[in-house]
Nucleic acid binder design. Structure first.
Lengths: 223, 223
DNA sequence: TTGTTTTATGATAGAATTATTATAGAAACA
DNA sequence: TGTTTCTATAATAATTCTATCATAAAACAA
């Protein structure tokens, strides 16, 4: 489960956000100020930090600096609307995104998911049906048994994981895997690799449930 | 239809982006420098500007200032990777987002949609009666069930979605879908595809409620 | 009404997309 | 080095889509 550290001193916002984010499947812990935040960050691992710029105790920027210098976690700033200075400073400090208040919950979720995707920052294990992929160990398994993916097959699977739910066109996939920069890669190569990957991760490769074909558009994992 | 003004002087990037964005249902026009960009912006309305920071003629910042002072259009900067200065300056000038190169097309689309949504534009899921279209997943569904649109049917539907409420003439549709540039496409082809699309998305294809025929003018989605 | 124009429908050959099988050469590794 | 696995491609099959034709129906104008 993706764990979020919320640093915010407005109690009502905290209450609302904790409830909302929990409903959305995140695990949330909150701190109201700088000291509490750093204490929590030291004790346990978080996958993302939501950071209010204006804290009673210190300000969000110092928390961001402290966290970024110590951990490799994406940080999203919650800033006062139109506060250009905060935005700018936030980015300078390495924030991954900023969200001006007031924001819609939906918007927040989108930003969070987006940043998690971009930074590959989700937990380290992803479950796709009965296949689990551990991006730290670098293996895909079923029932604990290694599926022995080749390097390319694994990379392909990662691309799908990082874009779960989205259709990925052939050209996108080719670009992501073969890093085309003028090089010409046979279009069919991808098709063959999709087949190989399916052969290994699908229970019934003829009727794939994990990697779906979206004819004319590409492929999608939405399990 | 969401119209994008692309200001970029690298021909290959322009070619790729125009193709990709068009496929995604946007209408794109491009300019290679400051003067061309401002000229275009004056002539027609755009919903968003994609702006390269480094132009041969002037730089992206001046284009941004000029556009922002005149029009209320979101601007996304395309910056060299890690170019903090550009990012900062871009935001100071009122840019709505920035995307460091090299970027993945998908990422770009997400950013574009996001900004359009924030600024009161698009969204990734559109509801047409009981049919919903998710442009990220690349599917149209009813009651959660895939309607299995073909690539062309899907593209056609996207054009309608991006022009909700407006009558689209046959020639407009033909142009949008078949990208006519001298090529001759049988006029009836469109009629046939309208029928096919209705067959799949309408409850009663004989009495369409989503895609209405406007005799003599074209078709319209105003649900 | 009658004729004309526009739109709708059904059928179909050829095209395009995706899936599958096989294989030569490259790369990894002992 | 030799062995093994991996990679890219080719050739081919299976499937689905596309564009078109022919014809019907509907809307309109005289």
């Amino acid at each position: 489960m993706t764990k979020i550290l919320l640093v915010e001193d407005d109690k009502s916002i905290v209450t609302n956000l904790v409830e909302f984010l929990t409903e959305e499947g995140f695990s949330v812990k909150s701190a109201s100020g700088q000291s509490g935040a750093l204490e929590l960050a030291e004790k346990e691992h978080f996958d993302m930090v939501l950071l209010d710029v204006s804290l009673a105790d210190g300000n969000g920027f110092s928390v961001c600096s402290a966290i970024k210098s110590e951990y490799d976690i994406p940080v999203i700033f919650l800033t006062a609307s139109g506060d250009e200075y905060s935005t700018v400073t936030g980015f300078e400090l390495g924030a991954d995104d900023y969200i001006p208040k007031p924001f819609r919950p939906r918007e927040l979720i989108m930003r969070i998911r987006n940043i998690l995707r971009l930074t590959g920052g989700n937990g380290s294990v992803t479950q796709l049906g009965d296949v689990s992929v551990d991006t730290v160990k670098g293996v895909a398994t079923r029932d604990g048994k290694d599926l022995y993916l080749s390097a390319l097959e694994y990379r392909l699977l990662l691309v799908f994981i990082n874009n779960r739910g989205a259709v990925l066109s052939r050209s996108q996939l080719l670009e992501a895997i073969w890093d085309i920069a003028g090089e010409f890669v046979n279009d069919n190569t991808l098709t063959v690799y999709i087949k190989r990957l399916r052969e290994k991760i699908e229970k019934d490769p003829q009727n794939p449930t994990i990697i779906k074909t979206v004819r004319g558009l590409g492929y999608r994992v939405d399990i």
